[in-house]
Every structure is written in C-alpha cells, then in structure tokens.
C-alpha cells in the first residue's frame, strides 16, 4: 500500500507553467464507516496533508479531508525559475509519511 507515483516533466522551458500529477495508493478510511460484522466504527485513517517542495522551499501544499477519494490523486502547477529537485511528502493520520522526489531542468 501507499506506493506514491508522480509525473514531473524532465525538461521545462523557462517561463512555462507545467502540471505536476501525483497519485498515492491509500484507502482513505473516512471514520464514518462501520465494520459489517461487529457494527463498530472503523477508525479514521486518511492522508491528511500533502506538500511539494522545490529545493527545500514549499511550492504547493494541500490539506485533505475524508471527502477526498481513496488513492488520492492531486495535480497542480509549477513554474520554476531554475533547475532543481522537487520533493513530495504525503502525511497520514498518526504522522506516518510517504515521500517521492524528482529532478527537472529549466532551460
């Protein structure tokens, strides 16, 4: 579970705005579902936040609520001024994190 995947263009033209696509396998348990056998509520466990940093500086951030679908897909735009590395961090309820990174060149 939770294998993160990202799509980042390898080469970005200077001044261009490109779309980054991200996906992570996660159940996104809402906390309002009940176990069919016991009738007990299944505790909430979702990816509650997502952050993208370029060379350590936050470029995009998201807070997710249980209304976000399982296997959350998030896309957003970046327009970096110079080549660098982009790091992605997904944080689950309870604090566990999942990471992925990619490099790109700007010319």
């Amino acid at each position: 579970m939770s294998r993160p995947r990202v799509r980042v263009p390898r080469k970005i033209k200077k001044g261009d705005t490109v779309t980054i696509k991200t996906l992570i396998a996660h159940k996104m348990e809402t906390g309002v579902r009940r176990n069919k056998k016991t009738g007990k509520l299944i505790p909430r466990k979702i990816i509650n936040s997502f952050e993208a940093k370029i060379d350590g500086k936050t470029v995009f951030k998201a807070a997710l609520h249980p209304a976000v679908s399982s296997n959350p897909y998030i896309s957003f735009a970046i327009s970096p001024k110079k080549s660098g590395k982009i790091d992605f961090v997904w944080t689950e309820d309870g604090g566990k994190t999942f990471t992925k990174s990619a490099k790109f060149t700007v010319a």
């Binding site: 261009d16 705005t17 490109v18 809402t30 370029i54 500086k57 936050t58 470029v59 995009f60 951030k61 998201a62 807070a63 997710l64 609520h65 249980p66 209304a67 976000v68 679908s69 959350p72 897909y73 998030i74 896309s75 957003f76 735009a77 970046i78 327009s79 970096p80 001024k81």
Partner: peptide, 21 residues
C-alpha cells in the same frame, strides 16, 4: 470540508485537480 490548497510564487497558476467522494 473537502480540501484546502496553498500556492506560492513558483506556482505559476492557481489551478489543480483531485478526485472526491
């Protein structure tokens, strides 16, 4: 509440997409 998104000077555009219930 569904989701919140924050942008920066390097965002280039304030747009995004996701899937929801």
């Amino acid at each position: 509440e569904v989701a919140n998104f924050w942008f920066s000077a390097d965002s280039g555009a304030a747009r995004g997409a996701f899937r929801m219930r």
